[in-house]
């Protein structure tokens, strides 16, 4: 009983450490981007452009079947890029599409979307009627979300973050903005590691934080300490930038090499999008 109570109270540290681990895994892990696969071998600029075209197609199409076809392409690209199927499915189908399903749940019923009834049921004295337009709209919404999420996940899994940031520059995003984001990414890992180390240090001195009030103090102290260190480090980093000639207008490296294969890929991607649009108009 007391163990269960302690476990219940000891939620702060595991929650923070799990959040940090997820942050590192989701935003900073380049395990799949470093693999030798199909999408990894493409020029990041043309790859991003092709994925933008796929995204626009997924958002514009009004047929769940055609959008599902696009998801099928995503799935094939994931396999060709040596991304484990289970990992890809968990990241693309489980959370965001599931939440979107909850969001559209009310639109299934005749009270929100009137139309031809598909099925009806009686629960707690209430009559529920699911309509054809409601069902079609909900399926379209969820498939669109799942496909869009898959495209974004696939792009971020198969491209190094440094390259994605460089692509932003090619797309006309100001260099200062890109530099700021890249520095955020760079120091996110450092501060996540720092917070983990602080928890380890606390544990080594006082054992497990078992009371929520003590835990709140630890978190508050941690926030203040991290804030202080962040401020101090930002000043030092600025000095390091000045020391190497920064005067407020950053100049950054542009190194990309597009080959024939990259252009062929872009053409294929555009043909797929055009084909889906064409089919969408016929349907």
């Amino acid at each position: 009983m007391s163990n269960a109570l302690n476990k219940k109270r000891d939620f702060i540290e595991p929650s923070i450490l799990s959040a940090l681990a997820f942050l590192k895994d989701a935003t900073l892990s380049e395990e799949y981007a470093n693999r030798k696969g199909f999408l990894q071998s493409l020029d990041p600029r043309l790859k991003t452009l092709s994925f933008l075209a796929f995204l626009v197609t997924a958002i514009s199409l009004k047929s769940a079947v055609l959008i599902g076809t696009l998801y099928g392409f995503c799935f094939i690209f994931a396999i060709l890029s040596r991304i484990p199927v289970r990992h890809f499915l968990v990241r693309t189908l489980l959370f965001i599409p599931l939440f979107s399903l909850f969001m559209v749940l009310p639109t299934l019923f005749s009270i929100v979307t009137p139309g031809e009834p598909v099925c009806s049921f009686h629960v707690l004295g209430l009559n529920g009627i699911i309509t054809r337009p409601g069902l079609d709209g909900a399926v379209l919404f969820v498939v669109r979300i799942a496909t869009s999420v898959s495209l974004v996940v696939l792009l971020s899994l198969t491209t190094r973050h440094s390259e994605l940031l460089k692509v932003l520059r090619v797309l006309g995003v100001p260099q200062l903005f890109v530099l700021t984001i890249s520095m955020c990414f760079r120091y996110l890992y450092l501060f996540a590691t720092m917070v983990e180390n602080i928890f380890t240090a606390i544990k080594s001195r006082v054992g497990v934080v078992s009371h929520h009030r003590h835990g709140q103090n630890v978190v508050a102290w941690n926030l203040a300490n991290t804030w202080n260190r962040t401020t101090q480090m930002s000043e030092e980093v600025y000095m390091a930038m000045l020391s190497r000639g920064y005067t407020g207008e950053p100049r950054l490296l542009r190194v990309f090499h597009a080959t024939l294969k990259d252009w062929v890929w872009l053409c294929c991607a555009l043909i797929i999008c055009a084909g889906l649009f064409y089919r969408g108009q016929i349907l």
Binding site: H161, S182, M183, F185, R186, Y187, M233, V237, M239, L253
Partner: peptide, 12 residues
Amino acid sequence: ADIQLFCPSVRE
């Protein structure tokens, strides 16, 4: 060195 290395890659 963490202060001096603020870019996303060693090359940069």
